[in-house]
């Protein structure tokens, strides 16, 4: 079966200064690659998590898929059809079958529209009549568990969790095959986070939607994703089945990220690995392995040679870019998985 979404060698480049200024200051490359050579596939009904620090290019990947940022090079195929470089009219056809949820639950709702008109928007845009759209809007409210009289409210009269539900409802409106969720739990307290995630998971089960979820919350990733990808400076450094990566991270960056995740068990032995230094500037990417400046295992070779992706022996779906991948089961992961002994 061909994948639902297939991203090949995606690169998104931003200009950092005008051409004149670049010429005057002698900068030869006034660009940064926010996303650099990213490839992945997403199958129907699958959930993929994108993880990484702020500025690692997670959101840019999402925006490129949604057509908000044209990719500089590379290809994005959705349902077997190339979707980069389309005209607005052509783009509209595929946007029907994918939807995006934004970080800010309230800010992503048009402030002057009522909830009901917001939910009618997707239908109006795709040419449905008013009365049918109204029926659909009411159905969607019920689907995400909001009472019908919420339809008359304005976004600022909603709580974060309620607004998020409206966002979920809107994303589901046109029966998409893919939902791209950018930090769907940002700004929500933990209980509401749980509600929203369970809602997403339930709807995914019922409707068979594929979800690309962007987050830096590792608990969310572990809870709902099938596979995860770790991004660093616009590249994937490790991709694989979520459980596999949590059990046995191979890239030192992944290891450090996982160790930074808060542990609910107060008695767990926390062996936190601190990452040294700052995230390098995208303007001056480090040579060789780009993580070598902060890696505690870095050796001489790491600063010189760019690591090619290699596969994990136990699972070929698990790949990583490291010259000296970590071996053996990861200590803390094992603890929290196997021994809840107090």
């Amino acid at each position: 079966m061909s994948p639902l979404l297939s991203v090949r060698d995606l690169r998104v480049r931003f200009r950092t200064m005008g051409p004149l200024k670049a010429l005057a200051t002698g900068v030869r490359q006034p660009f940064i690659d926010a996303v650099c050579g990213v490839s992945f596939e997403l199958r129907k009904g699958e959930t993929l998590g994108l993880v990484g620090e702020s500025g690692s290019g997670k959101s840019t990947v999402a925006r490129a898929i949604m057509g908000l940022r044209p990719p500089t090079s590379g290809s994005i195929a959705f349902e077997g059809q190339e979707i980069t470089g389309l005209s607005p009219a052509e783009r509209k056809l595929y946007l029907r079958r994918m939807a995006m949820m934004f970080q800010d639950p309230i800010g992503s709702l048009s402030p002057r529209l009522t909830v009901r008109s917001l939910l009618m928007e997707p239908f109006h845009i795709h040419g449905m009549k008013d009365r049918d759209a109204a029926t659909e809007a009411d159905r969607l409210l019920g689907l995400v568990g909001l009472p019908a009289d919420f339809g008359r409210r304005y976004p600022h009269q909603l709580s974060g969790g309620q607004a998020r539900r409206v966002g979920v409802a809107r994303a589901l409106a046109l029966d998409p095959n893919l939902i791209v969720a950018d930090e769907p739990t940002a700004g929500l307290d933990v209980s509401v986070q749980g509600e929203v995630l369970n809602l997403l998971a339930r709807l995914q089960d019922q409707l068979g939607i594929a979800i690309l979820i962007i987050t830096h919350n590792l608990n969310v990733v572990r809870h709902i994703t099938d596979r995860m990808a770790i991004m660093y400076l616009g590249r994937f450094v490790e991709v694989g089945p979520t459980e596999h990566i949590f059990r046995q991270p191979r890239h030192p960056y992944t290891e450090a990220l996982l160790s930074a995740n808060p542990e609910p068990d107060p008695d767990a032995v926390i062996d936190r690995i601190e990452i040294k230094g700052e995230v390098p500037s995208l303007l001056k990417r480090p040579s060789g392995c780009e993580f070598h400046t902060r890696c505690r295992y870095a050796r001489e070779m790491c600063a010189k040679v760019f690591p090619e992706p290699s596969q994990s022996g136990s699972d070929p779906a698990h790949s990583f870019k490291c010259h000296f991948p970590l071996e053996g089961r990861w200590q803390r992961a094992e603890r929290s998985l196997v021994s809840p002994t107090v």
């Binding site: 949604m66 908000l68 607005p88 783009r91 029907r96 939807a99 995006m100 800010d104 992503s108 845009i125």
Partner: peptide, 17 residues
Amino acid sequence: NSEFVEAERCMGASTLR
């Protein structure tokens, strides 16, 4: 560049709309 305008874009809304 506000999120709600981008959200509309993602639904396929035209600039005029």
